[in-house]
Amino acid sequence: MEKELKRTGVPDNRDVDSVYPGKERLASGAVAVLECFQRIPCNPCATCCPRKAIKAFHDINDLPIIDWEKCNGCAICVANCPGLAIFVIDENYSPTEALLKLPYEFVPLPRAGDEVKVLNRAGQEVGVGRVVRVQNPPSFDRTAVVHLAVLKELAREVRFFILGGAEGE
């Protein structure tokens, strides 16, 4: 974990590199990215994964280890991570767009078709996105998972959004 992260709270490129799947895996479809950089006592990601793609923890303070070949990007871990630190990326979504599945705990929830402003890890607006689907079943326990289409080149940066498109709220 980089010192900068402890100072600013924003993971930098090196932090992200350490948890990011390779180009080949990204090109083959939806996959979870676990942006968990600090050893804290927490393991729901491993216990909730139906495909056991996130390895069972030896020590509860372990950082999660994911087998990207087993992961199919179902996003169950996105809703179950207490730190809201897991995101699913599908670079195969369309020729120009990637699909992100982001955890979202605000009201009102967006609706499919909404255009939203998309933000990076530092909360800076970096473009617009389109809500494709909102998953909010009881099993997700009030952490909705919002499926957001963004330009492919933004897929690695965008981690949040605010309602209201380019025209404002």
Binding site: M1, K6, R7, G9, V10, A85, N120, A122, G123
Partner: peptide, 21 residues
């Protein structure tokens, strides 16, 4: 440095709140 869990910090940072250590 930030004293709390970094995942909590990341949640407020990406929503646009600066953390001034």
């Amino acid at each position: 440095r930030i004293g709390g869990y970094l995942v909590h910090a990341a949640k407020v940072r990406r929503a646009g709140v600066p953390i001034l250590t």
